[in-house]
Design a protein around this nucleic acid. Structure first.
Lengths: 336, 336
DNA sequence: CTGAAAGCGCTAACAC
DNA sequence: GTGTTAGCGCTTTCAG
């Protein structure tokens, strides 16, 4: 059916359909400037030849035809970011874009390495997670002159655009909530201290609110481990072993909080009577527990969708805000 | 610093360093055939100009220089596939490849649409999830002449290569296990009946084993919903409402099983005394429950890693098996 | 409505 | 050790 390398190109179609490459190109891209007859003939020939367009050539030759979008998340195994990725991918793929992923593992160096790779593919734009990046990353992106969306942790001075919410405010809101509920001796269990800037922001906000209310954080335990169920379980065990008479514990996220709940159940600690348990993130599991987890629900998919839309709007030259706030929602639950 | 469009290219570096484009290309790719002095000069100039290579041009011009790999999963929000993706990405990014993602939402049509897009970028290879694909997908991939790895559900006649395990065997193994434990009236709770071929395979294996043992499946409830906690909770409620006197229920996955456990706890149903609960997948949460969930643990990351390695081995012309079995592990747990 | 020419930035092949 | 030539497949521009 076709020639060299078993791959037909525009010229093959052109020859066989008796038109020029240019006409084929126009037809295939659904443009205008050809007769119905020509279109039908070209389409038929393309199908017959099993033509597969070469977007490498298209993107290369046209400088503005790239439909690649890079998206970097902290960890690919994070349930929350899976939903963000889903929101991004659904919005983008529907518009004909392709998503290149990357994980920075909470390291700005790894992020920079990823950015360096990804921009060499001349993507239409890039989505980053978080607001702290290496100077090299910022440089690279500024010079690349493509839309950049920083998601998750809002920043008022984005590289280009920002979509998300304030982690600091999440922590503060929970702090105030707990004080209102009469909690006086709060603890914190986290993970990945050095690495996770955003978890740290929540803790900062939490502490600020507690101190502001006159009942500062009593104790904290931060493991250097994946912030999952295990870490929550053992982190709470360690923290409680210090006998600080805590009446509530704020966890890095819902998974850890559920681990904490499991520990309480195993030890006969009554929740919320003996100890309050608070999570963050809003994973689905948290809402079918025997007692609904007190937590902050993050609209993950909406953030992904909004980020994708902001990116595309910029690409199309449509007006759009540089900073988009996607509010989180405190769910009182029954565990604190 | 540089010229038109603020982007330096090989020629800019060549001119400023007083060598030819070709020499610059050789230096930048870490090849051979230049003096130390030349190398230093070129490198310095490249850095000074803020040179960002154009892989679009490289991949386009060399036909064998693509480092793009496409990876399609059923759902981006699946915890298990998040880990698979992580395994793939870690293995691949370390070797300089970039991953383009896609989700097929359990639809072979959506998968075909994705394949059509992705191969137009002339990737080095493609990783698909599952073994059932549309004829169009198979055609496209066969003609593309690039390595293809089908993961998750093993097939002995892959398009090219297959890495995973047998879902049918997973179900059968659980069926036999339950019979040995004296269970006689088993039920099943699943989700996405039509769409999820692999879940169906597990159910098939499960039923075959039960029937083979003389105690066929008593009842099943399959929701058209996301296979998550909610669906598990309400699915079990619905199934039990039929008063079939079940003594054990096999769930589509761990999330649903945990939803089922939550239902039992809410209703005072004792597990495993009154009812056995069995999951599938091996999510982390399952192992910190008050009672460890009886389930099948799937080595997700290992599958991703093996798939990536098989793909790269093929690209390098290294010998490798077409079919790689990554065994799952039945965890007896305490819920059945 | 259609076509011809030029060129995107890089690498392969070959010459020196 | 280094340079020259050609060309990857497409789109842009400009002519008709």
């Amino acid at each position: 059916m076709s020639d060299r390398k078993g791959k037909a190109n525009l010229e093959d179609i052109a020859r066989q359909a008796g038109v020029s490459k240019m006409t084929v190109s126009r037809v295939l891209r659904g443009g205008t400037g050809f007769s119905d007859d020509t279109r039908d003939r070209v389409m038929a020939t393309a199908r017959q030849l099993g033509y597969v367009p070469n977007r490498l050539a298209a993107a290369f030759g046209s400088d503005a035809a790239s439909t690649l979008v890079g998206m970097c998340v902290p960890r690919l195994t994070s349930g929350l970011f899976g939903h963000v990725l889903d929101g991004v991918d659904r919005a983008l793929s529907r518009l004909g874009y392709q998503v290149m992923i990357g994980a920075n593992n909470h390291s700005t160096e790894e992020e920079e390495a990823w950015v360096r790779q990804v921009i060499s593919w001349r993507p239409a734009g890039v989505i980053l997670s978080g607001r702290s990046h290496s100077p090299g990353t910022v440089d690279l992106l500024r010079n690349a002159g493509m839309p950049v969306v920083e998601i998750w942790d809002l920043t008022t001075s984005p590289i280009d655009m920002s979509v998300g919410f304030s982690h600091h405010d999440c922590g503060a809101e929970i702090g105030q909530f707990l004080l209102r509920r009469g909690r006086r001796r709060a603890g914190y269990v986290g993970a990945l201290a050095r690495a996770d800037v955003m978890g740290q922001s929540r803790l900062d906000g939490f502490q600020a609110a507690l101190s502001g209310g006159g009942h500062p954080l009593v104790g904290k335990e931060v493991l250097s481990d994946t912030p999952g169920f295990y870490a929550g379980y053992y982190g709470l065990e360690t923290l409680l072993a210090r006998n600080l008479h805590l009446d509530v514990v704020y966890f890095h996220n819902d998974e850890m909080a559920i681990g904490g709940l499991a520990y309480c159940q195993a030890r006969g600690i009554r929740v919320p009577e003996d100890l309050g348990i608070v999570g963050w993130g809003g994973m689905e599991a948290a809402s079918v527990l025997p007692k609904r987890l007190t937590t902050t629900v993050v609209p993950t998919t909406a953030i992904g969708k909004a980020a994708a839309e902001a990116l595309v709007a910029r690409l199309r030259g449509e007006p759009g805000a540089d900073v988009t706030v996607i509010p989180t929602r405190l769910v009182p639950g029954e565990t604190a």
